[in-house]
Amino acid sequence: MTTWHEVEPAGGPVEIRGALDLERTLAGVLPRRLPAWTRAQYPGPFLDAVTMTPSGVRLAFRTAATAVELRLLTTVSPTPDDTRRPDPGTVDLVVDGELTGSAAAPAGNVLWPDGELEAGEPGTVRFDGLASGAKDVELWLPQDTPCELVALRADAPITAPGPHGRRRWTHYGSSISQGPGADRPTGTWPAVAARAAGVELLNLSLAGNAVLDPFVARTIRDTPADLISVKIGINVVNTATFRRRSFAPAVHGFLDTVRDGHPEVPLLVVSPVSCLAVEHHPGPTGAGPDGTLVALGDPDDVAAGALTLTVIREELAALVRDRAADDPHLHHLDGRALLGPHDTAHLPDGLHPDAVAQHRMGRRFTAEVFARPGPFAGRD
């Protein structure tokens, strides 16, 4: 008869990586990717919901178990034009650094566009057939589905993971980096790059909300990191957040705040990847009749200060060049090196990379940034 060893997913031996807040709920623990103090400064419920999506969040522990079960309650949110229950995604199993399994996350709550919550029940994800002997285990949560963690159990004792000794990488970006189009939680491009480079990822990418909010800059400033990257641009155009006059000062302010806490950490500014709709047309943006991205701004307004991706790339390149004269640890990467105009067939809605493109971006980032002579290359 199997003897099960059960622990709470937080407050015990399990380490929850990639989250900066653990909210206690009726069901269990809800990981959030921004700290609790930031909530008072959110502009609305959309950002609050985005912080609950656990892109890059994983449970880490050590065990000799051959079977592991995670009990969790998922919450999916259909889009306004979709009456179907979305797929909650998968949980990935990583053992001693190797991806060894994936299982469908259970159906739970449904939050409908009109605000009605269709309550569900927690379900269980089970992984069998793990190799015997002590090992470090990570369970990566679905990157686009909030998950309340109820319990973790295994057929052997669960203990705290050992120190990993890996460099800590904090990345800030938009939905492109949060990864809704990825095929699995370890398939977002930051996760692909982090695993290939052997670093610990904190993914602070915020779908629709990467607009240089000061509370995010302060979060990065106050969070231990060995490597930092900030990918800036697409949401600035999507929401028409800035004009040319205000954009560069906002970037300076964001970087200044980050530098207050990390004066010598390698800091990489990444400009936008290709997005045909807004390369030369300003935002805001919307969805066209076929659901693909369309620019709603007036191209004639660019001369008066409206922003396009082309303008943003020019501004970021100049800004980093000027700052780097006094900051040798500041670097720039043109985002088209990760996803260029020849890759746009892998943007099903004209904006979000599909699974193929997510993996491609991760590999290219690894080659451009983590490999020598890239800015994040390890030291001998």
Results as ranks from 00 to 15, higher is better:
L293G: 06
V211R: 14
V94I: 09
E264N: 07
G129H: 08
G187R: 03
P78A: 09
L201A: 10
T292M: 05
R71W: 05
G11T: 06
T83Q: 13
A371P: 11
E98D: 08
R221M: 14
P13K: 03
H346P: 08
R323P: 11
R313K: 07
R17G: 10
D322Y: 04
F127V: 10
T51N: 01
A131L: 04
P284V: 06
H332F: 15
A156R: 08
P375E: 03
H280L: 06
L201S: 08
A371D: 14
V258E: 10
T241G: 03
F370N: 04
V273F: 00
G187Y: 05
V57S: 04
A324V: 01
H359E: 14
H331P: 11
P161M: 01
G56E: 09
G198Q: 14
R39K: 12
G89V: 06
D213G: 12
E15A: 15
R39V: 13
W140G: 02
G101F: 14
L347S: 05
T25H: 06
D343Y: 02
G28F: 09
S175D: 11
H5S: 14
S175C: 08
D128F: 00
L130R: 13
E314K: 10
I228L: 11
A105T: 06
W112P: 02
R259N: 06
H332E: 01
R85I: 07
V230Y: 15
P31H: 04
R363H: 12
A345D: 15
A40W: 00
L141M: 01
P9G: 01
N238P: 02
R62G: 11
V320H: 11
A217Q: 06
T308V: 00
E368Q: 11
A248P: 04
D354G: 09
G129V: 07
W4I: 00
A151Y: 05
A27Q: 05
R364A: 14
L47M: 09
E15S: 15
T292K: 13
E6D: 03
V76A: 05
L276R: 12
G120F: 01
A27M: 00
V125I: 08
V258R: 09
P142M: 02
T310Q: 06
H342F: 05
A225P: 15
E15N: 12
T53M: 14
T90F: 09
I232V: 13
Q143F: 02
D327Q: 14
P272M: 09
L72N: 07
